[in-house]
Simulated assay, not measured.
Amino acid sequence: MTAPARPRKLAKVPFVELAGGRLQGVVSSGSDIGRVYVSSVAAGAYAFACSTNNNRPCGGARGSFCNHIRALINEAVLQYGAERVAGYLKVETADGEPSAQTIEACMSGTRPSQGDTKDAAPVFSRFLRHLAYLELEPSSAPLPEMQWFPPTRTVA
C-alpha cells in the first residue's frame, strides 16, 4: 500500500482506487446523506460512468463529467499524487507538474464518451468490504482473509 500523497477528508469521497484500467470510487451525494454514487473514468479513452448505489444513472453525467467525477479526480490526486493519476489514466498534460484541474481539462478536451455502469457493483462491493474493517475491534491478531500474505521472517 502506498502512503497517501496528502491527507484527505473521507466524507465526500470515502473510497478511491486506481484499478481495472480505471480511476474509480464511491462519492457521497451532496443532497441525500443515504445516497452514494459509484463513479469511474477509463484510462486512455476517458469513458466515464456515474450511477447511484442502486444503479440509477447520475443526472449530471450527460455528455461531460459530473461533479461526482470531478470530486473523484480531486481526491485521487490527494491520495496518489497528480503524476501517478495522470500516468495511470494516460493523460498527457502540458509543461509543468499536473494537477487535478489540468488532468480533468485534458480528459474533457478529448470529448470522453459515457461508459457502461456494469462495473459499479464490484467497486461498491469492495467499498463495503473496506467499511467492514472499520467495525473490527483493534487487535494485533491476524485476519483470516489476509492469511494469503507470506509470513514475515524474524531476525534473531
Rank of each mutant, 00 (worst) to 15 (best):
A71K: 14
L72H: 09
L72F: 09
L72Q: 07
L72N: 12
I73H: 14
I73V: 15
I73F: 13
N74V: 14
N74D: 15
E75C: 15
A76Q: 09
A76P: 14
L78T: 12
Q79R: 15
Q79C: 14
Q79D: 15
Y80W: 11
G81S: 06
G81D: 08
E83A: 10
E83Y: 03
R84S: 09
V85K: 01
V85S: 01
V85H: 01
V85N: 00
A86I: 07
A86C: 08
A86P: 11
A86G: 09
A86H: 06
A86D: 09
G87I: 00
G87R: 00
Y88L: 00
Y88A: 01
Y88W: 01
L89A: 06
L89Y: 03
L89H: 05
L89F: 05
K90L: 07
K90G: 08
V91Y: 00
V91W: 01
E92L: 05
E92C: 04
E92W: 00
E92I: 07
T93P: 03
T93G: 07
T93D: 05
T93E: 06
T93Y: 04
T93C: 14
T93M: 04
A94N: 12
A94D: 15
A94T: 12
A94Q: 13
G96M: 07
G96C: 05
G96S: 08
G96P: 08
G96K: 05
E97N: 11
E97Y: 09
E97P: 12
P98G: 04
P98H: 02
S99L: 05
S99C: 07
S99I: 07
S99W: 03
A100W: 02
A100R: 01
A100D: 09
Q101D: 15
Q101R: 14
Q101V: 14
Q101L: 13
T102D: 05
I103W: 04
I103R: 03
I103G: 05
E104Q: 10
E104N: 06
E104S: 11
E104D: 09
A105C: 04
A105F: 05
C106F: 02
M107S: 06
M107H: 04
S108H: 02
S108P: 04
S108L: 10
G109W: 01
G109M: 02
T110Q: 09
T110P: 07
R111W: 04
R111P: 06
R111I: 06
P112K: 01
S113D: 11
S113L: 03
Q114S: 07
G115D: 04
G115E: 02
G115V: 04
D116W: 02
D116C: 10
D116M: 04
D116G: 08
T117E: 05
